[in-house]
Amino acid sequence: MHVTVNGEVVELSESTPLLDYLISRNLNPAVLVVEYNRKILHRDRWSQIQIGDGDTLEILSFVGGG
């Protein structure tokens, strides 16, 4: 199945809880903000949401900026 993550198509072997996916990508969930199919997803729900075929994720964090 295919999921679009930050504009790139990513292949997933099976539907995965979002939180597990984030951890599998070596991301620190504490500093992230996630948009799931164009809706902001509160971090309380990251372990419940299963990402699957056709989903779109934006995974963002703060960087230096002026």
Partner: peptide, 28 residues
């Protein structure tokens, strides 16, 4: 001030918030 960007999925820099003291007002 800070900016919001897509994370680098292939590993990136340390998070900027680690460098900004917690009592600062953050202005994204």
């Amino acid at each position: 001030t800070v900016a919001l960007r897509r994370v680098n999925l292939n590993g990136g820099k340390e998070n900027i918030l680690n460098y900004i003291p917690k009592d600062c007002v953050l202005l994204p």
